[in-house]
Every structure is written in structure tokens, then in C-alpha cells.
Design a protein around this nucleic acid. Sequence first.
DNA 1: GCGACAG
DNA 2: ATCTTGTCGC
Length: 211
Amino acid sequence: MDLEKLKRLQEKLKSRVELKKFSSKVRIVAGCDSSFPGGRTLGVCVNISYPGLEIIEISYALLEMRFPYIPTFLSFRELPSLVQAYRQLKYTPDLILVDGQGIAHPRGLGIASHLGVIVGKPTIGVAKSRLFGDFEMSPGPERGSFVYLKNGKSTIGAVLRTRDNVKPVFVSPGNLIDVDSAVEWVLKLGAGYRLPEPTRIADKISKSLIK
DNA sequence: GCGACAG
DNA sequence: ATCTTGTCGC
């Protein structure tokens, strides 16, 4: 594998990322996540209703693993199965949440942005830990408080508390949405857990599907 | 050279 | 991510 070549591909795709206010009507939100049973990759996409937050449909794809885990190159490992699973969905979601970073990435193209560019839909990255970006202090202890993630002078995401006194998550826009709308929607899609329902359920299904 | 480093 | 049981706390 030629990482320098992949870096150039990421930089090229980054130019197709568009950050804008998100104000579409939302009826369906997809959650995407993957797991690695044996030497393979299991990509899972779940369509959830909004505001009901009920499961509408589930799709998945199991492929041979072609790429190792290398920080900042996560999408080359997880996207093949995720994109295939996404394309098998019967309904097109209005918004997609992905387990990982959006633009909060060294080259501005985390897995949520990469997927967003490929499918041309609004995406949000929700990660359980930090990859890139700086923040002065941690957010307040109560659900809803957050601090912005910065890259120099530009805002690239937020460290958001989704539950009282629980470790915050890292939210960043993937494509066709901005930081504030991303934070707003992650909170709207939450229901008492650290992770928003789309990603939490996708992760849950991904793990139980292995059995 | 050293430290950081999504899942 | 994955390997893995019970256990402390709200």
C-alpha cells in the first residue's frame, strides 16, 4: 500500500466536502458501524425513524479484510463493507451518522466525510475519542454542554457531553452540514446513552450479528 | 528524534 | 476493533 498516494486521494476528496447549514426535513437517519469477525469486515447500516427513533431496516455486508488499521486511514479499511451495506438499504436516509471522525482529521477527511462524499448525503462523525483538533478545557458536566474542537483558528468539530457526568464524544461534520447543526442533531438523536441511537444501534447489531 | 494516534 | 468476569455506581 502506498500511503502517500492515499494521502493525495484524501486531499482530493476533501475538496468535495461541503459544509453548510442543515435544515432538511428528517424522517430517516442511518447509523453506520463495523466490526471484524475473524479476518473479515462486517459493515452495518441501520435506518432509524425520526422522531420515533425506531428501527426501520437493517443491512450489512461481510467482506475479506483488505487493509490494516492505520490511524488517519481508517476509511480504507472500513468503507468497502460500509458502502456496500449502505447501497443495499431500501430507503434513502436524510442524514447519516458514522462511528468515527468527520472533518476533524489531519487532512480533513475522516470516515464520515469520506462516506458523505461518496454517497452525496449529509453525514456526521461521532467518535468515542479524539484523533485531531485541540480544545482548551473539557465541557461542563451536564448533557448538552460542549466546547469547540479547533485546528488553529478554524472550528472543525465539538467535544460534546451527551449524558450528565459521562465522558464526552467528539462530533464533527462529515459532509453537507456544519458544526452547530451536527451538535444539534447528535443531541436530538440521543436517548439516554452516550452514543446517539443510530450509531449505538448499528454497533449493537454489528456485534450481535457476529454470533 | 519524540509523542500522538478514530476503529 | 478484539481478547474477557465480575463488579461498583447511578
